[in-house]
């Protein structure tokens, strides 16, 4: 499990040591907004243990901060009485927690078997080329786009399937790629 959304290119290349538990720093302490804290408190009532709220709390953190920084890991760990290293271990297991800032549009191109049969790899490469020869997981200089390859999105009847942030797009081909990208602007 690695190479998920927002895995920084530098990390893919060399794994710089960035903190006790490997997470990148955002440079400042973080904390939930009152509304987020309220959601967090409500979460705790839904599980028999505090730890069980970890995945949903990380989701709130990602919504609040955009990505899971070292400071976010430490903050979530303190909220749930967990060791930061444990939280980081969980973050890195799942592909959807961004471990670096991502573009405004996180373009997730499915290349699993049904999409492969519909030519998804070409769409993935062409998409990155058109947005400035982006490397996998790299964000465009204007901060607008990050393109990654993802596993099956359960949209196999609408292959090639693409998800942008949380929105589903279907049948993105080389032919309609331009108009698809145009719509995102």
């Amino acid at each position: 499990m690695s190479g998920g959304a927002g895995t920084p290119v530098a990390e893919l290349a060399g794994n710089p040591r960035t903190g006790e538990h490997g997470a990148l720093s955002c440079g400042h302490p973080v904390a939930f907004s009152p509304a987020a804290l309220e959601r967090f408190e409500a979460l705790l009532t839904r599980y028999p243990t505090k730890q069980a709220a970890l995945l949903p709390t990380l989701w709130i953190a990602q919504e609040e901060f955009g990505w899971i920084s070292r400071e976010a890991v430490d903050y979530v760990a303190s909220l749930l009485d967990l060791a930061p290293a444990f939280v980081w271990g969980v973050v890195t297991f799942y592909t959807m927690y961004n471990r670096a800032p991502v573009g405004k549009h996180l373009i997730q191109v499915c290349t699993s078997i049904s999409c492969h049969l519909a030519g998804a790899e070409k769409v993935y490469h062409e998409c990155r080329r058109k947005l400035g020869d982006l490397k996998p997981g790299e964000t465009s200089l204007d901060g607008k786009y990050t393109v990654i390859e993802v596993e099956c999105l359960a949209q196999c009847d609408k292959a090639p399937a693409v998800m942008v942030n949380g929105d589903d797009y279907e049948r993105i081909t080389l032919e309609n790629l331009d108009s698809f990208l145009e719509k995102l602007k």
């Binding site: 995945l55 967990l82 297991f93």
Partner: peptide, 28 residues
């Protein structure tokens, strides 16, 4: 009570014991 719990991107969590580990707040 019914609670909706979101995973975070891991195929293996469809395996029932991995799903259980995951809902407990661990790696799957």
């Amino acid at each position: 009570d019914v609670t909706i719990h979101r995973g975070a991107g891991a195929y293996i969590c469809g395996e029932e014991t991995a799903l259980i580990e995951s809902i407990e707040g661990k790696r799957g």
